[in-house]
Computed example of a mutant assay.
Amino acid sequence: MLQDKDIVNDYLNGLNASLKSYAGYISDANNVELRQTLIQLRNGDESRQRTVYSYALQNGHYKPAQPASQEEIQQIQSELTSGQ
């Protein structure tokens, strides 16, 4: 029998996969109405993902990685802006 943690993590994985797919679908959509619909669907999934993530965090089903240091953040910002 599936545990609450398993169900939550499976749902989060599904939401994360769909969110990654939306970027390609939206950028490829030539029809304005289709593009807008995909954006709305993505926004709904982002909202659901945040809700499920918060639930998982509060119930100990997920432990996030350590926050990046200020030095790491500055290094990434520097790398991203120098490549433009």
Rank of each mutant, 00 (worst) to 15 (best):
M1C: 09
L2Y: 13
L2S: 07
L2W: 12
Q3P: 00
Q3D: 12
D4Y: 14
D4A: 15
K5L: 01
K5N: 04
K5T: 03
K5S: 06
K5A: 00
I7Y: 11
V8N: 10
Y11H: 13
Y11G: 00
L12C: 07
L12I: 11
N13L: 15
N13C: 07
G14C: 06
G14N: 15
N16V: 04
S18H: 05
L19P: 00
S21R: 14
Y22R: 00
A23N: 09
Y25E: 02
I26H: 04
A29Q: 08
N30T: 13
V32E: 11
V32D: 06
V32W: 00
E33V: 03
L34M: 08
L34D: 02
R35E: 04
R35C: 04
Q36E: 15
Q36N: 15
T37K: 14
L38E: 02
I39E: 01
Q40M: 12
Q40N: 11
Q40H: 13
L41H: 01
R42H: 02
S47A: 13
R50H: 14
R50L: 09
R50P: 04
T51L: 09
Y53A: 00
Y53D: 06
Y55P: 02
A56T: 10
A56G: 11
A56R: 10
A56E: 08
L57E: 09
L57V: 05
Q58T: 07
Q58G: 09
N59C: 01
N59F: 02
G60N: 06
G60W: 10
Y62V: 06
Y62G: 00
K63F: 01
K63L: 05
K63S: 03
P64Q: 12
P64N: 06
P64G: 05
A65T: 12
A65M: 14
Q66S: 15
P67Y: 02
A68G: 08
Q70M: 11
E71K: 13
E71D: 15
I73N: 04
I73Q: 09
Q75N: 09
I76S: 09
Q77S: 10
Q77M: 08
Q77V: 07
S78K: 15
E79V: 12
E79F: 12
L80A: 07
L80G: 06
L80K: 14
S82W: 14
G83W: 12
G83E: 06
Q84Y: 13
Q84F: 07
